[in-house]
Design a binder for these strands. Structure first.
Length: 110
DNA sequence: CATTTGACTTGAA
DNA sequence: GTTCAAGCCAAAT
C-alpha cells in the first residue's frame, strides 16, 4: 500500500513505531527510498500534528537520538511521553539509543 | 513558475 | 574529538 503522498507514507511508518522504541528521520526516509529527503521526514512530522489519527512524532528523533522535536512539541512533553513508554531520556537525548532504536527498513523488511 | 525553507545526514578541516 | 560546511528532496510561499 504505497501512499502516493510522501507525507502519508511517513505517517504510516511513524505509527508503526512500537511502544518504547524510537527511530530516526533518515531511517524512515531510507525506508521510503528517499534517503536524501531526511529533512522532509521531519517536515512531514510537523504536519503530522494536524493529521488524523495523530502520529507518535515523539518517537521520532534525529540520528543522534536527540529530541530535536521537543522544540516543536512545546517543552518537555516529548520527553515525558518517551519516558512514559519506557524510553529513558536524559539531557534531551535517548539513553541506550541503539537499544531502543527501531529501523523500519529492518523491522518492516520482513 | 522560481525561490526559500526545513523536526536531517554525512563528510571534511 | 569537535566544529563548519555542503548536500539532499519535497512542500510552502
Amino acid at each position: 500500500m504505497a501512499e502516493p503522498n510522501f507525507y502519508d507514507s511517513v505517517y504510516e511508518v511513524a505509527r508503526l513505531i512500537p511502544k518504547g522504541r524510537v527511530t530516526s528521520y533518515g531511517a524512515i526516509a531510507a525506508y521510503l527510498g528517499t534517503k536524501g529527503s531526511s529533512r522532509m521526514v521531519g517536515y512531514a512530522m510537523q504536519a503530522a500534528g494536524r493529521v488524523d489519527p495523530p502520529v507518535p512524532a515523539h518517537r521520532v528523533v534525529n540520528r543522534q537520538g536527540l529530541l530535536t522535536a521537543k522544540f516543536h512539541f512545546g517543552g518537555n512533553l516529548m520527553q515525558t511521553l518517551l519516558e512514559n513508554e519506557g524510553v529513558k531520556v536524559a539531557d534531551d537525548q535517548v539513553q541506550d539509543f541503539k537499544t531502543v532504536f527501531w529501523d523500519p527498513s529492518i523491522e518492516l523488511a520482513l
